[in-house]
């Protein structure tokens, strides 16, 4: 574990389940005031990350067994959205801050989107926010390049403002990987679990495929980490500053 921008902590070599546990634990500590707000960056072995509603689909158990046998263990996360694959082809980012009165969905998405898009542009990728309807885990705040999904953003707000609650904004960034095989894994899960949702590989890309010279994966990972750290250094004030609205009306 090391910090290379204020509040940025990186971990590698964990399983997805271990990394999600670490993320939850860290978030709880931020909510409780035991840690300052910060950003986690992690890479893990291949896995399919799904949402709680998807874990209640009729064929969920069977889909998990099938994918586990195929080398894609299934993990459940706290954020919304739908299933997406993680692994050496991708990097996961989580920005965590105490849940504050007046926080809004849009402001918190901005806390992730702004430095992430800045980092991708530093790498020469013309990234922008936009919906990519046929991508996996599609949302209106996907990060896209050339109309194809490059990264997905999501949020989980746990607990209540002033009582140990936290907000976590996550991003899953595709650095490499083959869209065909990644979409096949997601579609297999959805079909077996009993969901109607399907994705198309034509709607998905990766940083590697959006650069004029295709770098090797290790060099690309290092370059992305450095670009993100630089973007976060320029942006740290955003996550540390409480929103201007005075009260959250519950």
């Amino acid at each position: 574990m090391r910090a290379d921008a204020p509040g940025l902590i990186r971990r590698e070599g964990l399983s997805a389940a271990q990394a999600l546990d670490w993320q939850r634990q860290t978030a709880s500590e931020v909510g409780a005031g035991l840690r300052p707000p910060g950003t986690l960056l992690w890479r893990c072995a291949p896995a399919l990350i799904v949402t709680r509603p998807e874990s209640r689909l009729p064929g969920f158990g069977e889909a998990c067994e099938h994918l586990q046998a195929a080398g894609w263990p299934v993990c459940v996360r706290d954020c919304g959205g739908s299933a997406f694959p993680v692994g050496p082809h991708s990097v996961q980012i989580a920005r965590i801050l105490p849940r504050r009165p007046g926080s809004s969905l849009e402001r918190l998405y901005g806390c992730m989107a702004k430095p992430l898009i800045a980092a991708l542009r530093r790498l020469g990728v013309p990234a922008c926010l936009g919906a990519v309807p046929d991508a996996f885990c599609a949302g209106s705040r996907d990060v896209a390049a050339g109309g194809r999904k490059l990264a997905g953003l999501a949020q989980a707000w746990r607990g209540q403002p002033g009582r140990g609650g936290y907000a976590m904004i996550t991003a899953s960034v595709l650095l490499g990987g083959e869209p065909d095989s990644l979409c096949r894994v997601v579609n297999r899960f959805q079909r077996m679990a009993g969901a109607a949702l399907r994705c198309r590989p034509q709607a998905v890309t990766a940083v590697r495929w959006e650069q004029s010279a295709v770098p090797d994966c290790a060099a690309l990972s290092r370059a992305f980490d450095a670009a993100l750290a630089e973007a976060l250094r320029a942006d740290t004030a955003d996550i540390a500053t409480p929103p201007p609205v005075a009260a959250e009306a519950v």
Binding site: G80, Y109, S140, Q155, A156
Partner: peptide, 8 residues
């Protein structure tokens, strides 16, 4: 749940 965000 709204826009891929879950809120308690």
């Amino acid at each position: 749940m709204v826009e891929k965000a879950t809120m308690e």
